[in-house]
Simulated assay, not measured.
Amino acid sequence: MDTTSAIPSPASRKMLLDHARTVAELADRHAVTLESILAILRSGRVDDRAARTIAIETATTALVELRMETDVQRSSMIEPVVGAFARLQSDLRPLVRFGALDVQFVEPPTTGRALPGEVAHVARAIVRSAVLAIVDAGESRRVRIQWDCDGLNLLIGIRDDGTGEMTAHDDSLRPIVERVSALNGEFSVSATPGWGSSLSVKIPLDAPVESEFLEDTVQLSPREREVLRLVVSGARNKSIAERLSISENTVKFHVSNLLRKVGASTRSELVALARR
């Protein structure tokens, strides 16, 4: 038996070691955070109200750091499309095993282009959200999930055998729309009454080329530049708030400032001026 193909390359070994080191560092960091929170809550030097306040601040700081670290790790990772799909199947295994919904998987071709980590992560989240929305509706017995790759985009197809009344404006699909928009993708729903609904998603594998927006004419703060880039990518306020770990009200404040500084009256006009 030829075992050479099972031996990881030096680059693969380095990637695995770097990943293991990162995981270990995160585990140590969060262990310290949990120990700190326990110490605060057990302390006899502060009253309950002060202890809660300090514990919340400690946990919030740790969560922000975790999200930042996760974003960095995710953006630097590359996942083979087949491996990313296998992780999706693993994520949905409890639902397949214990739920009443028959989930059928159509695997992508093994020759498909590898996915950027952010795309793979969002793609799995989209499918999970769609399946949960179908389960909550309680009108389908079967759902078919298909991934494909045309070299430039990840193509996701999700079809159920429900009543065929789903639309792209359903509240249950709003998280999907926001995630797809954040990656400058496309989302559509087609439904046939009595035959079921089909969800189609196209996510670009390459991020749009970024330019230095309005640098020559408008002075923007670093945070305003971050908000502007996300607005131009199609992200909504809620998605921007999650990406930057700030509140939606803060996002609205920055967008309002951008409109004023740029001289735009609408969000669409702001995007047009930024892309010019």
Rank of each mutant, 00 (worst) to 15 (best):
S198V: 14
I203C: 11
D216E: 14
E178K: 12
A191S: 13
R225I: 14
P175S: 05
S239K: 10
I240T: 01
R236H: 13
G196S: 07
L183C: 00
S190K: 07
K202R: 15
L183M: 06
A182W: 01
V209K: 09
L155R: 12
A168I: 05
G194V: 00
L173M: 03
W195D: 09
G151L: 05
V218R: 02
I156W: 08
G151Y: 07
T217G: 08
T217D: 09
D150V: 06
A191E: 00
P222I: 02
G194E: 00
T217A: 15
L155D: 13
I176L: 11
N153A: 13
D160V: 13
E210L: 12
G234F: 04
G151V: 05
V201E: 04
S239T: 12
G196E: 01
R174H: 04
L154W: 07
A207T: 13
R225N: 05
T217L: 09
G194R: 01
P208Y: 09
R229D: 02
P222G: 11
E210P: 02
S190C: 10
R223I: 15
D171H: 13
N153Y: 08
K202S: 15
L205D: 10
A182K: 03
E215D: 13
G157L: 14
A168H: 00
I176T: 06
G234T: 01
V227I: 09
I176C: 03
E215T: 09
D160I: 12
D150N: 14
L173S: 06
T163R: 09
R159Y: 07
G234N: 00
R225Q: 12
K238P: 05
R223L: 15
R174W: 08
L154H: 10
D171M: 06
E224A: 15
A182G: 12
